[in-house]
Design a protein around this nucleic acid. Sequence first.
DNA 1: CAATATTA
DNA 2: TAATATTGG
Length: 331
Amino acid sequence: MGVKFKDIVSPKKINFKDLNGRVIAIDAANTIYQFLSSIRQRDGTPLMDEHGRVTSHFSGILYRTSSLMEKGIKPIYVFDGKSHNLKGETVSKRIQIRKESEKKWKDALGKGEIKEARKYAVRSSRMSLDVVNGSKKLMDLMGIPYIQALGEGEAQASYLVQQGEAWAVASQDYDCLLFGAPKIVRNLTISGNLADLELMELESVLKTLKITRKQLVDVALLVGTDFNSGIKGIGSKTGLKLIKKEKEIYNAIKKTGTSFEEFGPDPKILRNIFLDPEITTDYEIKWKNPDQKGIIEFLCGEHGFSEERVASAIKKIKKMDSTQKSLEDWF
DNA sequence: CAATATTA
DNA sequence: TAATATTGG
């Protein structure tokens, strides 16, 4: 879900050509979840192979990644590791919603209410271990690098941008601002196209709001994050005002009449989730030649994809491959 | 969501 | 050719 910062940040519109030649660290969980949610039939049934195994994420990964590469974008996917103890409540809430939605989906389907069915199907999506492993396998075959984070993928992806290994993180959530990502790209899709590709820069956010990153995290903690519920009635605008006035989260909490017990976890611990996350340096970022035979065997052989479509996607990957190569050969 | 087929 | 509808797995 992510922190609700929509009302206090103002991303700028960008174009695909602004991303040409850039390395983009893609939040895998965020992206794959979106594929699972939206690549469905009208009644909400996901794409499946003949054995009933969901293939929506394969479709999304193959076609989006190859199209991005055709546009000169160099993608790295970053997967989540273990989630923080304090995320437990968020996680179980999501499981609950998923369960209820699955039931409502089946019910609506039984009653022939197509639109209603799809609405709930979308919310029933689940990132199983199979989905994650299958996604990694496809990325390996495609020659696309991915990194397994120790903790939050968004933290690891943000670190990559801080290190200069990637130009921006691609995610729909604003959380990467808290993790310190200097640049975040939103709406990195192919069909959504020109209109709503967005770039958000941490420096400009902090400058505009006239606060520090630590204070931005404090605002988030008042509003609520995946790791704490925040304070009821405090949205991003009120939260921002409070932190600017009180400077410190402890004073801000007191000001709202909330006790620290009601507030929940120690703000210092919460802050550190964002300011000092566990990061791995055990990775290699390298785009390899796609294994055409392997991809076709996997997608077409095992999962019933059309060979023609898959072949044309592979062609797009190779296109970037050759331009990269000729560049490397130059030096 | 993205590719493709269909239509205006 | 571009906008719109449908299929993909």
